[in-house]
Simulated scan of single mutants.
Amino acid sequence: MKKPHFMEQSFKLIPVLFLALSISFFVSCDKADTDQKDPEAKLLTAGQTPARSTSGLTSKTTSSFGDIGNGVNLQPSYYNGGNCDLGWNLMKQNTKIKTVRIEVEPGQETNAKRWISEAKSNGFLVIVTYHKSSVLGSDSTAELNAAATWWKNNYSSLGGNFVINLINEWGSHNISPAAFAAAYNTAITEVRKVYSGTIIIDIPGWGQETATAACAVKGCSTGQTKINDTKIILSAHIYPGAYNQAKGRYMNTSDIDDLASSGRPCMIGEFGNSGGSGADWSGIVDYAKNKGWTILGWAWDGDGGSMNMITPQFQAYTSGNPKTYTTSSYFSVVYNKL
């Protein structure tokens, strides 16, 4: 995601400081870019045989920490200098939320350590994402390697025992399967120096290029470079403007099957109802969930726009004095899907 997501066709709004810049950037993008955003789901009905891991179509999304339950995203880095009360009391009352994906901007390590610790102590499975707002959709291998180095330097000090989502939305709509695979092979090697667990990989094109990601794993041309590490989960991000450039169209449910053809576990790492139009975000999310994939809604709080499940926006943290939040009108959009 971005700084409050403007929607990488993730469409989440960026903090006021970056709004003018973001508007000028997105106006200049081509249609594919402007139309991008931006586990515990059930298996098929009783009596049906779940697909094997070679297809992934009906496999639960599982990690080295067990099955990943459905849940929500949090983006606290851009509010109160990151010193945010995350609303755990209200979250715990809504028991369909099993997993939290916390996005961390580099420089927020001290606050992030508390966020992660609180999430664990409140009983949630935790996914932590390196989220550098200025490089979303980038094909820069230097930026991907910087994320890998950040994990090598910070995984242990952040408390460990959580699932790593290596970087949020790295890779453009234009990146090739071979280039995507080669870049991730290098980055994953670095992360493996400190972490042996499952690594979540956001697929390219702001989480929308399913065919590119699948080919990066299984290879679709003779001698093509493939992602070597098998302990990975591929993560798609689904919004109304989700656009699959490789297919020349907005995303649909066939893209879920495309991604599953990689043979790796898959998930919907973000979904929401704002940002563009053309894709049936709701139908795609339901389809993925019915295949057993984890789905994570955007966002519990921190969107910067209309996609916040609670209100007010993140309040300042005070030890021993939890803040009061209430559910917003958007809450049911996400929660009813979980």
Score class of each variant (00 low, 15 high):
1 M>I: 14
1 M>S: 13
8 E>T: 05
10 S>E: 11
24 S>W: 13
24 S>A: 15
31 K>S: 10
36 Q>V: 12
44 L>V: 14
48 Q>D: 11
51 A>V: 01
51 A>I: 12
55 S>T: 14
61 T>S: 02
72 V>N: 00
73 N>T: 10
75 Q>R: 07
80 N>H: 15
83 N>M: 00
93 Q>K: 13
94 N>K: 12
94 N>L: 10
95 T>D: 06
96 K>C: 09
98 K>N: 01
105 E>Y: 09
108 Q>S: 10
115 W>V: 12
124 F>K: 07
125 L>S: 15
127 I>H: 04
128 V>F: 13
132 K>L: 15
132 K>P: 01
133 S>P: 00
133 S>E: 13
138 S>N: 02
145 N>K: 06
152 K>E: 08
152 K>D: 07
152 K>V: 12
154 N>K: 05
158 L>P: 07
161 N>Y: 12
166 L>K: 02
167 I>F: 11
177 P>T: 10
180 F>P: 01
184 Y>I: 04
193 K>S: 14
195 Y>N: 01
196 S>N: 15
201 I>Q: 00
205 G>E: 09
206 W>Y: 13
206 W>N: 13
217 V>C: 06
222 T>W: 10
227 I>A: 00
235 S>R: 08
240 P>D: 02
241 G>R: 09
245 Q>N: 10
250 Y>Q: 08
251 M>C: 12
256 I>K: 02
264 R>F: 04
268 I>R: 01
272 G>L: 05
273 N>D: 14
274 S>Q: 14
274 S>M: 13
275 G>S: 11
276 G>K: 06
277 S>P: 03
279 A>G: 03
282 S>Y: 15
286 D>F: 06
289 K>L: 03
289 K>F: 00
291 K>R: 14
291 K>S: 02
296 L>H: 02
298 W>P: 07
299 A>G: 03
307 M>R: 14
309 M>R: 03
314 F>E: 05
317 Y>I: 07
318 T>G: 05
318 T>A: 11
318 T>H: 10
320 G>Q: 10
332 S>P: 07
335 Y>D: 06
336 N>L: 00
